[in-house]
Design a protein around this nucleic acid. Structure first.
Lengths: 115, 115
DNA sequence: TTGACATACATCAGAATCTGATGTACAATG
DNA sequence: CATTGTACATCAGATTCTGATGTATGTCAA
């Protein structure tokens, strides 16, 4: 595939960016939020989550800051950067294009080409 | 992810099954048809195509028969089996569920609450 | 106190998949 | 004769996800 390349690599990233696009959050909470918004249809494992967060930070799409808690373990809170906002828009659009393309294929064979 | 597991593994398979759901075809033609239906948004490389066809045949979802041509190379024509029809329905439904879930997440926060 | 569970981070081996290149072979075209 | 299109197939390399494991803190109950 071509855009699926992006999709496969990025559906995890897209989801994370989308959540951070609404508000800064930390890893554990991001995973729960994705689960909640998707009504548990999507579950992000820690083995996928943390490497993805690191990759996003390496690319400059998000930035992190440790936040000590009065109670419980410290949290690493991530914030979407300006660069990350552009990337989020790009990935959203790539997802839409991809999902429309898949729907076109599985939707059936169009007989008259309206090209 | 959970369904993405299916998605990632299967978007290629789903596309192939969908094309064969309309009519029997051979590898090269399937790839072109996917490209055509998606307006070139999806391009299936041979390195993804042929292994996927073999996997589908191993699972009994499609069956193959060589077809000699009067002119040009022989073709291996694939036909969707009954079992394959059930699988196609299953994969279509999995795709829809997955894409809706992704849309729910990137669509924004329904209940915005902090942390 | 001990055990279980939730929060919160992180890493790793193994499995699965896609990309891109390469190779074989036939036929038509310039 | 070289190139291009058809049509099959394989493989190394890169990437990603899964599931398990590990560390550490805090709460709750037995």
């Amino acid at each position: 595939m071509k855009d699926q390349h992006e999709l496969k690599k990025g559906s995890t990233q897209t989801l994370i960016l989308a959540v951070l696009g609404d508000a800064p959050s930390h890893g554990y909470a991001i995973a729960r939020e994705i689960e909640r918004r998707s009504a548990s249809a999507l579950k992000m494992g820690e083995g996928a989550l943390y490497p993805a967060l690191r990759a996003l930070e390496n690319d400059g799409f998000i930035s992190s800051a440790w936040e000590l808690q009065l109670s419980g373990p410290a949290r690493k809170v991530y914030t979407l950067t300006e660069k990350g906002q552009g990337e989020l828009a790009r990935q959203k659009s790539a997802w839409q294009k991809f999902s429309e393309a898949v729907n076109s294929v599985i939707g059936g064979a169009p007989r008259g080409q309206t090209t």
